[in-house]
Simulated assay, not measured.
Amino acid sequence: MPIAKPVIKALNILGLIVLVAVFAIPFVWMISTSLKSYTETVLFPPKWIPDAIQWENFAKAWNSGPFLKYFINSVLVSVGILVMQFSTIIFAAYAFARYRFKGDRFLFGVTMVTLMIPGQLIFLPVYLLLSKWGLLNTLWALILPFSSSAFGIFLLRQTFKQVQEELLEAARLDDAGEWTIIRKIMVPMARPTLVTFALFSFIAHWNDYFWPLVMTTTDAARTLPIGIAKIREVDGGSAWHILMAGNLILVIPILIVFFIAQRQIIKAFVYSGVK
Rank of each mutant, 00 (worst) to 15 (best):
L155R: 02
T159H: 04
R105Y: 07
L121M: 14
I90Q: 00
F96E: 00
L135A: 14
Q120M: 13
N63W: 05
F96H: 02
W140P: 04
T114F: 09
S74Y: 10
L142W: 13
N137F: 10
L128Q: 15
R100H: 11
F86H: 07
L76S: 05
T111K: 08
P125Q: 10
N63G: 04
L130I: 09
L142A: 15
M84Q: 03
T88V: 14
K60M: 14
V79Q: 02
E56K: 02
E56N: 13
M112P: 02
A93R: 06
F58D: 01
W133M: 15
I122K: 03
N63R: 12
K60Y: 12
Q54H: 14
I143H: 06
L156Y: 05
N137E: 05
Q120F: 12
Y70C: 10
Q120N: 05
V83S: 03
V75M: 15
V83N: 01
S74E: 03
I81V: 13
I81G: 08
L130D: 12
V79Y: 02
Y94H: 09
A61P: 10
I153M: 04
P118Q: 04
A59D: 13
I143K: 07
A92Q: 14
L139E: 02
I153E: 01
G134M: 06
P125A: 12
F106D: 01
V110P: 00
V110K: 01
V83C: 09
S78L: 10
S87T: 09
S147Y: 09
Y70S: 07
Q85V: 05
F151E: 00
T138K: 04
F106S: 09
L68I: 09
K60E: 14
I90C: 03
Q162Y: 00
A97Q: 03
T111E: 08
L128V: 13
S64C: 04
K102L: 14
M116P: 08
S147R: 10
F108H: 04
S87L: 15
L124M: 15
V79C: 04
I153Q: 02
